[in-house]
Write a protein that binds this DNA or RNA. Sequence first.
DNA 1: CTGTTAGCGCGTTCAT
DNA 2: ATGAACGCGCTAACAG
Lengths: 334, 334
Amino acid sequence: MKKPTIKDVAKKANLGMGTISRVLNNTGYVSKKTRKRVMKAIEELNYSPDPTARGLVSGTTNMISIVVPMVRTEFYDRMLNAIDEIVSEKSYDTVIFPLLSKKRLERFSDSNAFLYRTDGIVMASMPVHKLFKDGIIPTDRNVVLVDMYSERYDCAYVENVDIGEEAAEVLLKHTDNLKVLTFIEPNNIFTTNVFSKRLNGFINKVKDSGISFNEDEVYHTEINLHSAFNNSIKILKQTKDFPVGIFTTCDLFGYGLTVAAKNLNLEVGKDVFIIGVDDQIWSKDIGLTTLKQPVEEMSQFAAEILLNKINKTEGYQEIVRKKFESVLIKRDSA
Amino acid sequence: MKKPTIKDVAKKANLGMGTISRVLNNTGYVSKKTRKRVMKAIEELNYSPDPTARGLVSGTTNMISIVVPMVRTEFYDRMLNAIDEIVSEKSYDTVIFPLLSKKRLERFSDSNAFLYRTDGIVMASMPVHKLFKDGIIPTDRNVVLVDMYSERYDCAYVENVDIGEEAAEVLLKHTDNLKVLTFIEPNNIFTTNVFSKRLNGFINKVKDSGISFNEDEVYHTEINLHSAFNNSIKILKQTKDFPVGIFTTCDLFGYGLTVAAKNLNLEVGKDVFIIGVDDQIWSKDIGLTTLKQPVEEMSQFAAEILLNKINKTEGYQEIVRKKFESVLIKRDSA
DNA sequence: CTGTTAGCGCGTTCAT
DNA sequence: ATGAACGCGCTAACAG
């Protein structure tokens, strides 16, 4: 019971292999009648073409690789869904490569890694210049970056410095008494420093506005709610004057702060102003004002330019770069 | 600048293709000297073999597919890491297929989907009997299930009914006044009903112990902290007698309940006893007693039997099934 | 020990 | 409009 091949179909339909291939790929001429015969044979044998063989001869796989740093956040979940939606319309399949470890990165440095055998690659939040030798992704396939700026590659990104600046603007409308709750990224090749960019943008904007800002007002937390809660309690207890405006560099921290404020009987939106980043699905429920990164739009845009490039016939192609703006979602907290 | 092929290497080293192939695959005899020559040529040309061509002829890819329902939980993140760790030792690569949608499921029903072109498939938390026609995964490749029991396939799983029972046991040591906070799974082909299994196990155990249990004592929540928190407040407010013991069918809900209790000035571990499931990374920090599913052990076991099967030469192989026991992690909350 | 050759399953000429 | 033959890059089998 071996799997049927195109040869079996040809034999069954009393036709040449070429003809079968032609109806399979909708290429060249083939009469209506024989097409029907082919379809019937395919049906009967329950045949479907072998993608490996196809890949070998045509060089294409009808698949798109998506490389993500990890797979446990809403951000990347949204991204994967958005990309899959776009490419599946053109009957491309997605396959996910989480960059789990340094060992995996090494494997990804081989241009024959499976990752690069697909028709196109989406790299999300990857500091390509740090990860790959000479900053070059070892492939001749089409590549597009999401959530990352690059000089060399097509990319769809948001400027995290801008996010920090916008956060400052929002809070400054309420008070000059400002603090920040953020995460300190480890200094390794994997990080894209989104948190420190947001922080820097915030500080710059505040200082530009002529307000003094002491680095002591930046508090640290780990990326989990419990740590965010604990450190929020600390911030609030150390706060002498209210109201206070606090920029939490992601919504999760904003959540911790919201709960902490409630615990200390402080009113969010009056005693404590909070702005977060990301607009998580639950952010609405807790009335958190936030800067939403347009993940879906960004991802879909990236997917589209990737498909374009794949289907464009050879030749020079300009690098496409698109900066996406975060959107202020105004709710009760600020 | 085409990529070098094995032919180029052969030419460069003045050898036959066969010899190159032999050193590449460590098969057959090849003298030390020529091996060196080959290595040198490979180095100089920066050659690496084309996995597609390899796959076509040998039928193997050195890759393992992992199918997961989604990719945004710690549970699956842990699983992926655990599996990757095992298989990468044998220089297999992992590729992830999240079952994002019904459309994707359809694609997965084609035995030539890329998913099935790898050397082995790990399916996580997949109700195979509901997802595939006749309950058969359309492939002749080796398959093993994780976090799911099956009559037909090798599997490594935990019995979620047991988890509910154990939770009941723990809480009953503190009080007979019991409640549950859980999620109601939608009734579709994707769900594995872990939550209702845990609930049923709990209820059965309680009733077996001669304690009456009213279905009204089961409260529902969505799978996010905010909903868990809100519904926890509701539970606690509707509770007349303390202490109360509450089984939260996952740690996330336990977290919401912990925060809610604090909010209402109830002491966890005295007024309110809580037991959760999963032992998330932050569960320790909030002192949550929990039943840890041995994700890593389970996943690694599955990976190992998969590798075994792959490398075993043909012939009858018994189905391997291993049930893993959850581990009680005792902390302050119960 | 090493070279040669026949396919793996398919797409793509090139005849017809 | 269709069939035959070649080759994609590689491994396996067989000669030598």
